[in-house]
Design a protein around this nucleic acid. Structure first.
Lengths: 343, 343
DNA sequence: GCCGATGTGGAAAGCGCTTTCCACACGCTA
DNA sequence: TAGCGTGTGGAAAGCGCTTTCCACATCGGC
């Protein structure tokens, strides 16, 4: 059933030229070929339905047209937005995106990079969120070094790794600004649904929020850790409810957690923002029409993906860092405190 | 800066064996190699940091480890959920996913398939939504034929193409069941935000809904076409509002459109479900905690991706069709009609 | 009219693997 | 002991390209 593929030799034969000439015509070469031969070759290729073998080209050229994209979970809107940006730029440049998912397993991250290296991928964008696990980080660093040594470029989104291109979202500054705005609304007692302890993104957001509160003279927030997911937010909010903290405002370190938390509060008979205010982080596009609107810190996710892809595609000598500042967006889910808070 | 890569010859030399033996040890071969040589080779490979060149393997074996995934827009939760399913299965099987996005351009779909074919991709999952454009469909069919002739497998999600594996979501039946439930609530006058005219998925959902209404003896719905996106839903809802149809229930053919529509209704001072009921389709995970909860037809999106991937990976002689039925989920966004409807 | 410069075509040597052959050494049976 | 199957190692022929050489024209300047 598998019929033989048309090769360049056959095209060359059909056109009555040498293999070299056919190759020069059909693929970008610096060498000139006379118009007559050129037309013959192009005609033969079309007539025979010639399709270059990408593996053979990659082997001969020692470089592929593949660009890796490593994310934790492509179904997560945070990552899928970034992926959209990366994909757009890569495809515009005629490259092919290889998608790898880690499920938040640092070991898997290394594995994927390994595979990508085996494929001689031209570049990789790692949109994972760095862990604080030293061993994993060091193996990742080794793999990245191997990748760049081999001539590939690596960029990270939000991982401030030494020596590679990075797009750094304003996690700390954004959370800090959010804290400022929320205290300006009159809140003094806060709770934070802080995500996993070993996730740098989550830690940064927590730290920034704390800093903002401290500046405003608000009390140290009550912190609950948990998963970085909807369910994590839901569980953390339930924990919060049993703790009876008196918080009038809840900050979830990302939007999907905020979503889960809102559900938990609602199940508990609490209204947002009348009984408690809530804010998230990211400004996930799908959630922009929520009612009440979710106050959050907007990150230009697609743009972050685009910028990471650009960093990794146009080649510049030294590693660069691009900042993607977050912008506080206050919507209806936060208001001035009125009730007694969570008791 | 780009240092030479360790090749199999070097490993063989280092281990003092032939190239053939090294290859047999390091890659699955049916041939036996004595334990002693095997250990020597493995040891040398590890010591030298050998990494097989995937392009060379693909060339020699005439088959790659790549699996294509073609979607319209990876940032769309519908597609990113499907992508998560496909990716999981592919990665479990040790394969590498190549992500291509079409931006709803049928021509781009063909292009991507072409590229995938050039890479000797082992299989492709097309999660696009079929258009009714005959010319585009025929070029796609040609490309698919070429792909399968070459030994690759192709599966589609929701495109009922002749001769290839397909996962068919219950668009028609789901919409029909939804219509049944909504009429049971007492609604008689409906409006449908129907998406693009040339999108088969959208047409099927509209047709199913119409059928359900007809069965229940409800009036023919007022139909507004538009984009399959949040903004499309928003615009269509605005159009609906100016039309003054008296509809008491709005069906948006997917959840993101429903989301946009809800925003438009809200902006117009209408309450859901008190003034008007609204329902969507898909049951996007991110929107499950909406308040009021969005009535919809749940599609097992990730599972659909998984099943498509399985279809395309385990090889069976004839094309198969797998059904993924939709399940009506009634939540708070729909209630019995109370007011006068949209005027 | 000679000489380098330039432009164009082809032969062939890889790129790094897989996989057929072939060779050889055993361990059997007859 | 001859003869044969079987298990294991190696030589070498590809896989389908790219790219270096080399050969040969042609052309302009003097």
């Amino acid at each position: 059933m598998t019929s033989r593929q048309v090769t360049l030799v056959e095209v060359a034969k059909h056109a009555g030229v040498s293999l070299a000439t056919a190759s020069r015509v059909l693929n970008g070469s610096t060498r000139q070929v006379s118009d007559e031969l050129r037309e013959r070759v192009v005609g033969s290729a079309r007539r025979l339905g010639y399709l270059p073998n990408a593996s053979a080209q990659a082997l001969a050229r020692n470089s592929s047209v593949l660009v890796g994209l490593v994310v934790h979970d492509i179904a997560d809107p945070y990552f899928s937005s970034i992926a959209a940006g990366v994909t757009r730029i890569a495809e515009e440049a005629g490259l092919v995106v290889v998608l790898g998912t880690t499920g938040r397993d640092p070991g898997r991250e290394v594995e994927l990079l390994h595979t990508l290296r085996a494929h001689r991928a031209r570049a990789v964008v790692i949109a994972g969120t760095r862990t604080t696990d030293r061993a994993a980080a060091s193996r990742l660093a080794d793999e990245i070094a191997a990748f760049t040594t081999q001539g590939g470029r690596v960029a990270a989104v939000s991982q401030a790794k030494l020596g590679i291109d990075t797009v750094v979202p304003g996690n700390r500054a954004g959370a800090r600004a959010l804290a400022t705005e929320l205290t300006a609304l009159g809140h003094r007692r806060f709770a934070v649904l802080a995500g996993p302890q070993d996730l740098v993104v989550a830690r940064d957001r927590l730290a920034g929020f704390r800093a903002g509160l401290a500046e405003a003279g608000a009390a140290e927030p009550f912190v609950v850790h948990g998963d970085f997911t909807r369910d994590g937010g839901h569980a953390a909010a339930r924990e919060l409810l049993t703790a009876g903290t008196g918080a009038t405002c809840v900050f979830a370190v990302n939007d999907v957690m905020a979503m889960g938390a809102m559900a938990a509060l609602r199940e508990h008979g609490l209204r947002v923002p009348e009984d408690v205010s809530i804010a998230g982080f990211d400004d996930i596009p799908t959630l922009r029409d929520l009612a009440p609107g979710l106050s959050t810190v907007r990150l230009p996710l697609e743009e972050m993906g685009e910028r990471a892809a650009r960093l990794v595609l146009d080649d510049h000598p030294t590693a660069r860092t691009v900042r993607a500042p977050g912008e506080v967006v206050l919507r209806a889910s936060t208001s001035s405190p009125s009730g007694t808070g969570l008791r």
